[in-house]
């Protein structure tokens, strides 16, 4: 009975807390925060609809609205070949995403579910390699690719984005660590091979971590301009990725004619990514935190 009473009191307290005025204040604070967070995004969208091609520094909203920037993006000139860039990036992202996801899952499974003598040394090596600044190895990677005759090619970029992806296995490993061992032991007793366990038991329950890996590796090529700029150094515009192409629009001699197109390009890239994020949000979060949370 006492418990019930306490619960009643608690409920009353809760009701008091939830009075409309506090709720209003609470939601207004959130709204204000959301506005602060969205101002630059709104500016991006507004600017992308400006009829003036350069940067608008005097008013927040453009003086004259137009959709010309989007139209121009789809009618490529020598500078802006947006549809081509988009296609390039999409292809690179797809391959990167497949290879990276495979690599990450493979390494995570081997280090999490299997025991073999080189396991710990390999994991320690991975920790050490992750501590080096990636920027530093850029020039060496460039010359390695050149040796393979893969500079200025999309295969080269795919390799750069995905070849070392095995190093990012830790989150997936954390996730696999939570899969009950008994399940695998039972399967083994039934005569299931390690490969069988991997495909039949682990993969089916790994949806969140797969989504997480897929999204994060898919996004890489859309965001990176440093490596892409270095590797696509022949100045052939048709080969650019979206990031390199848009970045080059801000070149000193071009910015005044291309700034709003840059914004329009930014909006166009963000839309699919946003949709991907919103739809997959649940899995993404689960994957990211799943390893530690599930227990």
């Amino acid at each position: 009975m006492k418990e019930k009473e306490a619960r009643e009191i608690h409920k009353v307290k809760k009701l008091k807390e939830n009075r409309t005025s506090t709720i209003a204040v609470h939601n207004i604070v959130i709204a204000v925060l959301a506005v602060i967070w969205l101002i630059p995004i709104i500016w991006l969208v507004c600017t992308s609809f400006s009829s003036y091609p350069g940067m608008n520094t005097s008013t927040f909203f453009p003086a004259e609205w137009s959709t010309a920037n989007y139209a121009k993006l789809f009618h490529p000139d020598t500078v802006a070949q947006f549809p081509q860039w988009f296609k390039n990036t999409f292809i690179i992202a797809c391959f990167t995403c497949v290879i990276s996801t495979l690599f990450v899952l493979m390494v995570a499974y081997a280090t999490s579910m299997m025991r073999f003598p080189m396991r710990k040394p390999l994991m320690n090596m991975a920790v050490i390699l992750n501590l080096f600044p990636g920027m530093l190895s850029m020039i060496a990677i460039y010359f390695t690719l050149k040796f393979f005759n893969l500079t200025n090619s999309h295969i080269g970029l795919i390799l750069v984005y995905s070849a070392s992806s095995g190093l990012g296995y830790l989150i997936a490993k954390g996730f696999f660590d939570t899969v009950p061992r008994a399940l695998c032991e039972a399967a083994k007793l039934d005569g299931c091979s390690e490969a069988g366990i991997f495909f039949r038991i682990i993969l089916p329950v790994s949806k969140p971590i797969i989504v997480y890996t897929v999204i994060s590796s898919f996004l890489g090529p859309w965001m990176d301009f440093v490596f892409a700029k270095m590797i696509l150094n022949a100045g052939i515009s048709e080969k650019y990725t979206v990031a390199v192409g848009l970045y080059k629009m801000l070149d000193r001699s071009l910015i005044n004619n291309y700034f709003t197109q840059f914004c329009a390009g930014g909006v166009l890239v963000s839309i699919p990514i946003s949709i991907l994020f919103v739809i997959m949000q649940k899995f993404y979060v689960e994957g990211m935190t799943g390893g530690a949370v599930k227990g």
């Binding site: 081997a110 390695t144 190093l167 069988g196």
Partner: peptide, 27 residues
């Protein structure tokens, strides 16, 4: 695909890391 499955799994990822991360860093 049995007790040496880790070899199958790790060969390519480790190879990728060696060529694209380890050798450049050593260099």
């Amino acid at each position: 695909i049995g007790k040496k499955f880790h070899v199958t799994l790790l060969t390519l990822p480790v190879l990728g890391v060696v060529i694209f991360t380890a050798i450049p860093i050593l260099l």
